[in-house]
Design a protein around this nucleic acid. Structure first.
Lengths: 263, 263
DNA sequence: TTTCTTGTTTGGTCCGACCAAGCAATGGGC
DNA sequence: GCCCATTGCTTGGTCGGACCAAACAAGAAA
């Protein structure tokens, strides 16, 4: 039971962390809700009896988490206001950690597959006509005969986001968007290095239409399975192959597979 | 195509955001890796020609994201060091946004189910003997006849985390831990208000053992399905029922179901 | 009534100063 | 010659004060 990792921390709290804790208390307790305004920074200085720098550092953290939105001036929209923009913060966080190779691409793909399978199942159950129309519009853009790779990739993303939004689960949607954004660059690189672009394009078109049809038909089981295998196949055929081809050094394979498991 | 939301932003960059961008550049470009040290704050002031306050605000954000770890002194471990502790930052972010009801509990449950299904499938494919032993140990703790609810919940969490770790996917593991931590309080509350604790406890025990056995047998399909239905059933039977019972006001049902969908 | 000016509030930025935690080099005592 | 306390330097942590610019509100001037 004496796990060494459990005895490590002992974090001496810095002032800004205490400020953060005070504000979080009120959020967790429901006393601060979306739209509410925090007292002005100078007032918080007096209330909490710390320097403005400490206050501001805490506010910066909340802002980065998408919980706060600060504006100057005196209007009704000014000051530090509790907001709700989780996807930006999530995207940023995941981007950095993926870049630090904490999360190998393989893991990200797996997470995407899991999340989007869930989205597709939910979407099949409760997508509205408007939702289906939005998906169909994305498909139409990708079906343009001479569509460019950028255009295609752009609407590919929109298509998957549309599915997530149709599912109505905001957490899953935001996670999906964040994960997708986080690997956007990698995806585009793979897309450009593609040898047989036309074949892959046609394959993706067919898969997308199949997914759309399953959702439209309300077949959750099939929609989920199709999305899952769609993501797995694409990353297996395209990303892995392309990233490991000519310039495929050991460094890149590490990006894919991650460091060996150690215990 | 003229979506109104796309014309809103125009974010005037603040100094700390520029500093943040510079540091992120280097991380994204792979020039800063885990373990590397940033220049001292006072040096960054000269390099970037901004105030120390701006530097520090940027560093605070990175720290909150689990990308940085700062220590005073001159030793080899001192200064601002690139680190990799994503789950803490994720947990914090999710906790706040769940509290702000951006993410209704229902959505969180769905995300958990999706992620842990994926974990279980991976675990069934590649769990080692050591992994299985750790799971079994958690089960043993939960099987103690007079186990307390706290003990049970504690090892319940460990069991699920053990599965995620056995899956070997760090992103999914960290997301799982973060999501679980974020709803820990809600979970414990539901656990305590439980009417027929013994019946629920026995049901959970049986489900846990079935999951363990499926993973041990290498049956990915079954393991995944069992975990998924396990989570769905528990939250449907316990959390939803309990949280909406006596004190079940409209506010709490909003926490569960979230605000009505508007388009 | 309308328009311009002025003042106030608010976040944004910077500077300079001091503190305490650590480590490293120094030097006396054995 | 070796050990250990002292001293000094580097580093993040904290603070107070000052000034800027954006944004709005109120009052003055047309």
């Amino acid at each position: 039971m004496a796990e060494p990792t459990l005895w490590e921390p002992v974090p001496r709290s810095r002032t800004y962390e205490l400020v953060l804790a005070r504000i979080e208390e009120q959020i967790l307790a429901g006393k601060l809700r979306v739209g509410d305004r925090l007292p002005p920074e100078r007032e918080l200085v007096e209330l909490l009896e710390v320097s403005r720098a400490a206050i501001r550092e805490a506010l910066r953290v909340l802002e980065a988490q998408g919980v706060l939105r600060a504006r100057v001036g005196t209007g009704p929209d000014s000051g530090s206001v509790i907001a709700a923009m989780p996807s930006a913060g999530l995207t940023q966080l995941l981007r950095l950690h993926i870049a630090l190779a904490n999360f190998p691409v393989k893991d990200v793909v797996e997470a995407r597959a899991a999340l989007e399978r869930s989205s597709a199942r939910l979407a099949a159950d409760q997508a509205t006509e408007a939702d289906l129309d939005r998906m169909a519009e994305c498909l139409a853009h990708m079906d343009v005969p001479e569509v460019s790779r950028e255009e295609f990739n752009d609407h590919d993303t929109r298509f998957h986001v549309a599915i997530a939004e149709a599912g109505g689960n905001r957490l899953v949607t935001d996670l999906t968007v964040a994960v997708r954004n986080a690997v956007r660059h990698t995806l585009m690189t793979a897309f450009h290095r593609l040898d047989d672009w036309e074949a892959e394009r046609d394959r993706l078109r067919a898969e997308h239409h199949a997914i759309h049809d399953a959702i439209a038909a309300g077949d959750a089981e099939r929609a989920g399975d199709l999305v899952e295998s769609h993501i797995h196949r694409f990353h297996h055929d395209v990303v892995r192959t392309v990233l490991q081809s000519p310039e495929g050094t050991s460094a890149q394979s590490a990006i894919w597979d991650g460091p060996p498991r150690e215990r």
